[in-house]
Structure formats: C-alpha cells, structure tokens
Nucleic acid binder design. Structure first.
Lengths: 233, 233
DNA sequence: TGAATGCTTCGACTAAGGTCGAACCATGAA
DNA sequence: TTCATGGTTCGACCTTAGTCGAAGCATTCA
C-alpha cells in the first residue's frame, strides 16, 4: 500500500540464509556453477537451483550457460555495492555469522571484496596511499592525486584507460572486519590484479582468502609503507 | 556455515513488507511514532511494535522516548544509503510496489530522499550543476568545484561548516525513478533546506512528496537552468 | 545408443514467523 | 484517583516458503 520501489522484495531475496551465502560467495567476483553454489550454501542442488532462479528473476544475478554448466555471477557493481553495505550494517550490529576456524583470521588479514583487496592489508594499503598523498579527500570524497596517478603508472597500471571506463576509479569501501576504509573501484581492482600478476599473492578459489607469499608481503610493505614518513617523502 | 558478517539477518529484517514500508517512510529523515509507522505499514499497533523492536535490535533504528511517545528514526546515513541502494535494485528489476493514484506521478517529480531532493527535479538540479561546472568528476568521483562553492555560498549555504562535519559533502545518489543521478550528501540536504526556508517548496508530512509553489518552480529553474548555456556562461 | 553428469521440475512435508485480539504497563491530564 | 492515550507482551492461528526425494531434461562422452 504505497509508492516507490518494492524494496522488501529484493531484501527478502537477500534475506534467506542460503541465498545470502551464495551472494557472499559471488562477492569474490568469480562466476560459480549451480553445484558450487549449492555446496557454498550448504543445501542440495535442487534447492540451490530454486534459489538461483529466484535471485535471477530478481535481477541480482547474471547467468551464463556453457555446455552443461550454468555459471552465475553478480549482475552488476550496484548489486555488489548493496551487499557490501549490508555487510557493514551486519558487522556494525555485531552480527557475525560465526567465528569458527582459522579461516576467519585469514579473512581478516586479506580477502577479496568483489575483486579488490580488503581486510587488514587492504586498510594498510589505503592508509599508506593517503599518508603519501597519493589519495586525497575532497570534502570526504576520495580522489586520486597527480602523484598518485604517477605512482600507479610506475606500478604499471594504465590509469588513462581506467579513467575512460564507466566504472568509478576509486571508491572508499568500509571494511566490516576493520571498521575502516579500504580502496575499491577500478583502481582497487587494478592493484589486486597486479599483485597476482607479480605473484605477490594469490586468491583461494573457495574462501575469498588472499594469501601473500613471503616475498609478496615484503614487497607489499615496501610499496605501501605505513611507518613514519622519511624526510621529504 | 561460513565466514563474514551475517548479511541475511539484516536483509531479512528489511525483507518483510511491513518493516520495509516503515523504513521507506523513515527515509524522509523524520522521526515517526509507533502509531504513525503502524499506519504507514498498514498493520495494527501490536505488530508494528513487534517489528520495530526487531529493527531496533538489528541496529537499523534509533529510538527516542518523549513523554508517552516513542519516536523512531533511521540509525545512520549508512542505513539510508543501503536502503537507497535496494530501491535502485528494485526499480531496476522493474519491481515497483504499485502504480496507483496520482501520488506516484508527484513522487517522480520531486520527493525527499533522506533529506535531500530526488525525482525529476533532483536530477535537473544535478544536471545543471554539472553543466555549469559547479560539480565535477574526478574519475567518476563527485566533487564540488571552486565556482560551485562560490555558487552555494551565494545561495547562503555555509560550505565551510559543512566541510568540517564528518558527513560527506556531496555524494552521487542513483535515482530509482529517473535511473539517473542526483545530489546527496550534506550539500544536497542544505539545498533542500534552503528551498524550504525560502518557501519555494514544502514537504508533505506523510508521503515524501515535495511540492513546489509556482514561484518556487520559477525560481528553481532560474537558479538551475537546464537549457543551452548562455554565451560565456 | 547408452551411460554419466549437470541442472530443473514436481510434490509433499515442515518449520518459521507474521498477524491480530486481549490483557497489561506507563505516562499524562483532569 | 480516575480516565484516556500510547506502547508492549502474550497466546493462538495460519499462511508462506524453504527443504529434500524422486523423476525428468539436456548435454557431453564413449
């Protein structure tokens, strides 16, 4: 009995535990099959199939058929963005899903948040970029400075083509585990991609954990120092 | 069975139609009593009370007692932001709640979106500010330019004190009815407040409709022209 | 053609939770 | 105190929808 978009319909879609698990899994940015998502959600394949068709009907997913597999990914950045926001609210109200096993600690250290780096290392990177003046705020809006553009270019990230794309270059993303910001947007993704290219880190396929090698960690801290600035730095 | 925040819990809270109606009503930014929210949601007071205590437990609301009334408002900007996002997804997937009555048209023209102006006039204002160079993008990040700051100051908006506050100055907000951007953030609110101060517009108490007077519309279009720019403009 | 794999559909069961009437508390006014 | 009003709590009802077994398509491979 009212005006406006049916927010309850979408929220109810996300509000089922099994479906929420699937969506969370898809936050990694990867496309997953029905059976993988069933496993992820802890339900049988039949139920998963039913859930996925509902999510699809709600426009939250993008399905693709390949042979006898059916792959699902999130429909858009907007969907991912809303999910991020919900995670923030859930973490804020102290509703963590569970705190079992070692995976949780790893997740807090470094994980993928829709293709960019989140967790402790994500916020470290963010803080360092801010401290060096590579990122700045214009009235709380996150912007890439000139030195920041040069820095990224040095790291072999093609800023110009990122700027041309429709997607936001840099966005601030609130980290649910740290309750602090990290870098999202196409630049955030580009950084993570470079880390993988350089074999500094690789993503776990199933858990969103990002594991850095020893050399990777060293190089990372070298590139994104967090200590006191050197004079003139 | 997983890591991370319990997104399903929050989404399920929003996912009930009655609760979603209440939250939508609170998007006006006003604090409402239990009975008002019950009316808004179309349920009895008992059920409303039960819903509200759940929403409160989930950290989505901020309750305040005054005498024998109990007022609820949204807990934070973050909550409003997530709700906006959900509206965008719902509108995008074509799930409008209903299209009855004249209210819907009025809502599309001008409405309140958590204290800033949305709808057709909201996007007009946004487009005009962009076209005049008062707002700009830094890699798709919305920023207020120097001329924009001067423009706002001329309109008797105290930019400096807005900048000092924690809240973002200007944010891009995707409009569910227009599928285009309008201006959110503290600057967006300041503009709407000025419109009311100048009696250009006033808000309907119950429906989020913002109705402009004839003079108000004229002044608005004068201030935010959308046609071709005058030479040298 | 047949077998195996991946996914969908159907139907029946079950549990969760939204709903309201009725009674109960709290505040404020007379 | 007594009454009226605003909210909350309790209990019973009942719809909704998540769940899985079983059967049915579709695709690939031998």
């Amino acid at each position: 009995m009212k005006e406006g978009p049916d927010i309850a319909y979408i929220a109810a879609l996300i509000g089922d535990p099994a479906r929420a698990n699937m969506l969370t899994a898809l936050m990694s940015g990867k496309a997953l099959t029905v059976s993988e998502l069933a496993e992820e959600a802890g339900v049988t394949i039949q139920t998963a199939s039913s859930h996925l068709s509902k999510l699809d009907a709600g426009g939250l997913l993008r399905p693709r058929k390949q042979g006898r597999h059916k792959y699902f990914s999130l429909a858009s950045d907007e969907v991912a963005h809303v999910l991020e926001g919900l995670m923030g609210l859930a973490a804020g109200s102290g509703h963590l899903r569970r705190r079992t096993g070692p995976k949780d600690a790893e997740l807090r250290q470094a994980r993928v948040c829709y293709n960019h780096l989140a967790g402790d290392m994500g916020t470290q990177m963010f803080d360092s970029l801010i401290a060096r003046g590579h990122l700045g705020f214009d009235g709380e809006q996150l912007v890439l400075t000139d030195t920041g553009a040069a820095f990224a270019t040095d790291f072999e990230i093609d800023i110009d083509s990122l700027r041309k794309a429709r997607a936001p270059l840099c966005r601030e993303c609130l980290d649910w585990s740290e309750r602090r910001s990290h870098l999202a947007g196409s630049l955030g993704r580009a950084f993570l991609t470079r880390f993988e290219e350089l074999s500094w880190a690789k993503r776990d396929q199933k858990t969103r954990v990002v594991s850095f090698s020893r050399d990777g960690i060293r190089a990372f801290h070298n590139l994104f120092p967090t200590g006191p600035l050197p004079v003139g730095g």
